[in-house]
Simulated assay, not measured.
Amino acid sequence: MMHEHIEALRQRFLHSGDDADLPIVDAHHHFWDLERNYHPWLRDVPRIPFRYGDYEAICHDFLPDDYFARAGNHRIVKTVMMEGEWDPRDPTGEARWATALHQRTGLPSAMAAQIWLDRDDVTDVLAAYRDLPLVRSVRHKPATVPRAAHRRDFSAPGSMRSEGWRRGYALLEASGLMFELQAPWWHFEEAAELARDFPRTRIVVNHTGLPADRSDEALAAWRRALDALARHPNVWLKISGIGEQGAAWSVARNGPVVRDAIACFGTARCLFASNFPVDSLVVTLDDLFTGFKTIVAGCTREERLALFYDNACALYRI
């Protein structure tokens, strides 16, 4: 019945073009229960340095009821939960917890799970995920450096060019899992090498490549990096996580970023996501999806449906 309801909503949007009818898959968000589970960055003090600054406001439970209390009137019908840096001593624990949450509440609809590609347990972790069908992809944030310190031959331990990391990455094809890449855009030459060398493994770029520096020079370089990575057809782009420390999220500031990202990857390989509750530090969930809708209002109905719903459903098989 749920599938029939969503398909009716989808067809109604295609007929009406009314954003009130637009079904949404939130392709990147978190759930966590800090009373029961250990996420070191959310539980331990002192807090770690963070790109949005002080994040004390998100260091509390965030579960499906908390999510929908913030969603306004948006038709969010499915979600993809991203790993939330759960205790690395138990890399599969979060996926098991999310599976139980899905069984109780129906959410998340799919998830990206924790992995450590250069650890000895990588084969065992991938084997465990075969028994957890909610898991569609995995994330291991590779080693990165600030832009000023980056060199084109960067290959530090734990980076996308390091031998152990690539050895683990090579196992993803046989597992059938995608890879979620969270790295700043100046590391995208390394990501392009992965896409080239492992063409049957899909890469899903998180947070639009993290264009935090909004200077003209930095944005031009970010666009060039996106363009180069987009040449590889096995790479997709999540438009999310584009807030700025100390600045309220706005269509005026983020509209050009979103439109440039879509120009690079096309409406067939981009998908919108909230990064909640993390991005609640810079925007409400209601205003975020309203802003995304405003930014792409000039797209066709089919393109808008792809960005908000169809692409995520296809990519995450939900």
Rank of each mutant, 00 (worst) to 15 (best):
P277T: 13
V257P: 11
R152C: 03
A252V: 12
A230T: 14
W165N: 02
P277E: 07
W185V: 03
H207A: 14
F188T: 02
H187C: 08
W222H: 14
C270H: 09
S159T: 10
R166D: 03
R196H: 14
G209M: 04
R224A: 15
N234S: 08
A268L: 02
A218T: 01
L177H: 12
F179P: 06
V278R: 02
R200G: 01
W222A: 13
A195E: 11
N234R: 10
T201S: 07
E217Y: 03
S175D: 05
G158N: 10
A149G: 00
F265C: 05
A183V: 14
Q182A: 13
A273D: 12
A252Q: 15
D260A: 15
G243S: 08
D197G: 01
A230D: 13
V205P: 12
A273W: 04
A225S: 15
S240F: 05
D227S: 14
S280H: 13
P277D: 11
A156L: 06
S240T: 15
P199I: 13
V283Q: 04
F276G: 08
I239N: 06
F265H: 03
M160A: 07
F265A: 07
P256D: 11
A230V: 14
R269Y: 04
C270Y: 02
T208G: 05
G243D: 05
